[in-house]
């Protein structure tokens, strides 16, 4: 697909490049919001949405979206209007931009830059800023508290995320996500396991656990959903938002969740590689496997969300600074030693 795109004129190719991840995000967000409610429902012995669209209320998210589009765009009287309006778009733009370096299949990646992972982490750090912006501009004390919590949380958890990603980069020897994925093709670890990085180095297993905890915190999921904790801060930085702007926040949240899950799938679980070697391989099946791996991680995130209570803000920080950061750096060094020895 990249070859086809490069042969096209510049502007249409650019638009197509932009449209593909956008379509994936939008479709995914609609499905994920519905799925989240279904998972929540089934876990709680309920059925979740059942009414819109026939089979298990599959059209619920679409109906919600239509409703949100029609809703009045309420801006608080004393809000800082420009930044209040701007924050949701910036948040979505940041998580959308990061999809540029995700290798969706062997045939498609938005941009084949050499600093892929690094670019992704850099762009997602802008999310923090948009959360602060939204929370501050709402001129609501709860929103501001949520925004401050969020900023502290995301800045802190970026460190263990980067450290664990660095461990993978160290083992793989590349920052380019496509190259990292290609490295993991084949099925010869211990004779039968796929060549996924998580099976390559025992310290990558611990790295994955820490990575997963960090991305839970980065994407504001329970037990680290403090910025929006509804029973404490009402809804944190989103309190004053309504209608389409609120939908943008939700979209960005879910996109962020998918982004980080896909990053995890790429880094640890072989990206678009089929788990059965050459069986069901190829660009299309690659996309299927890749999304499947990402969505499994998303599902685990949902499962955790509907099981656990949430941490308190100081405990959250203590986990990050006292446990995750030292451990992830020790892990990095150990992984490097393992690579040197074997």
């Amino acid at each position: 697909m990249n070859e086809t795109l490069s042969s096209m004129p510049f502007l249409p190719a650019l638009l197509l490049h932009a449209a593909i991840p956008l379509t994936i995000i939008l479709v995914y967000a609609l499905v994920a919001i519905w799925a989240e409610r279904k998972v929540a429902g089934f876990i709680q012995d309920r059925l979740g949405p059942m009414r819109v669209g026939g089979w298990h209320g599959w059209a619920q998210s679409i109906a919600d979206l239509l409703k949100l589009i029609q809703k009045e765009d309420i801006i608080p009287a004393d809000a800082s209007r420009f930044w209040f309006k701007f924050a949701p778009f910036m948040m979505f733009a940041a998580s959308y931009a990061a999809f540029a370096v995700i290798p969706f299949s062997s045939g498609y990646i938005g941009s084949m830059v050499n600093i892929g992972v690094f670019y992704l982490l850099a762009v997602t750090s802008v999310l923090t800023l948009s959360v602060i912006m939204g929370g501050w501009a709402s001129n609501n004390k709860w929103s501001l508290l949520g925004a401050m919590r969020s900023a502290a949380q995301m800045v802190s958890y970026e460190v263990p995320t980067i450290a664990t990603v660095l461990t993978v980069v160290l083992v793989a020897g590349s920052l380019n996500l496509m190259e990292i994925t290609e490295l993991q093709s084949g099925n010869d670890t211990l004779g039968f396991l796929p060549n996924w990085l998580i099976f390559q180095n025992p310290f990558l297993i611990t790295a994955f656990i820490m990575f997963f905890i960090s991305i839970l915190a980065e994407s504001h999921r329970v037990p680290f959903d403090l910025p929006e904790s509804e029973s404490e801060l009402v809804a944190g930085y989103q309190t004053e938002y309504s209608g389409m702007r609120w939908a943008m926040f939700m979209l960005a949240e879910y996109a962020d969740m998918l982004l980080l899950s896909l990053l995890g799938a790429t880094l640890f679980f072989g990206g678009w590689n089929s788990p059965f070697g050459d069986f069901l391989a190829g660009p299309f099946w690659g996309f299927f496997w890749f999304m499947l791996k990402g969505l499994v991680l998303v599902f685990v995130m949902m499962w955790i969300r509907w099981t656990l209570p949430r941490y308190r803000v100081d405990q959250l920080m203590a986990i990050c600074w006292n446990i995750l950061i030292p451990l992830s750096f020790v892990n990095l060094v150990l992984a490097a030693l393992w690579e040197m020895i074997f």
Binding site: A40, I43, Q44, D45, R46, V222, P223, D225, S229, S231, E232, W306, T307, L308, P309, R310
Partner: peptide, 16 residues
Amino acid sequence: FGLDLGAFSPFLYLFT
């Protein structure tokens, strides 16, 4: 109480 601390599901199990 569980709900206040963010645990949603126990609330509904107990409600059953």
